[in-house]
Design a protein around this nucleic acid. Structure first.
Lengths: 120, 120
DNA sequence: CCTTTAGTTCGATGTGTGTCAACATAGACA
DNA sequence: TGTCTATGTTGACACACATCGAACTAAAGG
């Protein structure tokens, strides 16, 4: 892989998904796409897992650090998979442990989706 | 209590619910409360209804204006009820029609929940 | 009373959640 | 190399909950 892409490219208005909720009525497709992300955070267990990862050092944590949410380990794995499928997390195996980390861009986009809606 | 506090008090950091996701791991109760709101927006139909209301004039709309989302009227009523129960909407009967309006404070709080998480 | 608008009840169907068991991967050690 | 242990993931199943529409009820207005 080439190292030609060295631009800092810090977009302040990331928008990988959809327009702000208050800008115009969402189309069916946009709603479908956006709902996946909100639905992923619409479960208490997933919310706690996500919060644990986000508040960890460097925005990443291994599964062993966040498995104390009151459900079994397979259940934790299932929930992490859903968060990953929603594009909110990414995982990486590092030796024995698997580390999950948050996707700041997607998160910021969701935030703007709401705050901009409120600003109108 | 004196009325010395007559400031316009435009809090940029409304927080009727829970701390930012990245500040610390959410407790079970906080996660439960927050999940209700995210789950309410985790459905395509509800997201479209909500977006329609938020993008309407003055942030409010009557049911008759937003019933073209592809489901029957009773279903629309169900979804609006859920959004209302989640604290995202408030309703008011004005003559023949019932008007729904968004709750900007709650919306802003949800946004900060996410953006602050991303900012860490 | 009749029409329009919206909410409620109720039941069928679909989707999500959580657990146990089995499987995959990585490291340690003889 | 072979095996043992620790860590996660996947599959299958039962259970609970959410979704949706048909029919009914309630409220407002002519």
């Amino acid at each position: 892989m080439s190292n030609a892409k060295a631009l800092p490219l810090l977009e302040p208005t990331v928008e990988p998904c959809c327009p702000p909720l208050a800008e115009r009525p969402l189309t069916a497709e946009e709603a479908e796409r956006t709902a996946v992300m909100f639905k992923a955070l619409g479960d208490p267990v997933r919310l706690r897992l996500f919060s644990s990862i986000a508040s960890h050092e460097g925005g990443e944590a291994c599964v062993c650090d966040i498995s104390d949410v009151g459900v079994s380990q397979p259940t934790v794995s299932h929930h992490l998979k859903k968060l990953k499928e929603a594009g909110l997390l990414s995982s990486e195996r590092r030796g024995t442990w698997v580390y999950y980390r948050v996707e700041p861009a997607v998160l910021a986009a969701m935030g703007q989706l709401l705050t901009r809606a409120a600003a109108v």
